[in-house]
């Protein structure tokens, strides 16, 4: 096991894995907008059709499998990244409406849209002048 893989295992989130091998924690950006949170995770190499986004017990789990492995027919001179699935979990409060969570994956970036529930959306209250 390389150093990189060890780090990856330490960082791995405890979501269920269907395959053995290291599981990497993707870098994420989180943006807050008035009506939703957007989570963008860097998952280079992940196949969009196989990405699994799961919500249970207030925890949103992302599992993005990578269908590649190191080729054995060649000699590696430089290896800076490990190849393995991506896993990460987020605890989500009731302020998010889980039924309307959507996800898209393009060019190695997974975007999750987490709409805020109606109760917490900012709203303007009109003041009546008498």
């Amino acid at each position: 096991m390389t150093d990189q893989e060890k780090v990856a295992l330490e960082n791995a989130s405890p979501c269920e894995q269907t395959r053995s091998g290291p599981c990497y924690r993707p870098n994420v950006d989180i943006l807050e907008k008035d009506d939703e949170l957007i989570v963008m995770a860097d998952v280079p190499g992940a196949v969009a059709e196989k990405v699994d986004v799961d919500f249970a017990d207030g925890v949103l789990s992302v599992h993005a499998p990578v269908d590649e492995s190191r080729q054995t027919d060649r000699k590696y001179l430089v290896q800076e990244f490990g190849i393995g699935d991506y896993c990460r979990s987020f605890r989500v409060s009731e302020q998010i409406d889980p039924s309307r969570i959507t996800a898209e994956c393009r060019d190695g970036v997974l975007r999750l849209h987490l709409p805020k529930s109606e109760a917490v959306k900012p709203r303007k209250i009109a003041v009546e002048a008498h």
Binding site: P44, G45, Q71, D73, R74, L77, V78, E80, F81, G108
Partner: peptide, 19 residues
């Protein structure tokens, strides 16, 4: 992050460039 590998006939470079 980059991988560089070689075979008898070629070099292969892979780079992680999400987004």
């Amino acid at each position: 992050a980059v991988d560089l590998a070689e075979t008898d006939t070629e070099y292969t470079v892979r780079a992680e460039l999400p987004g």
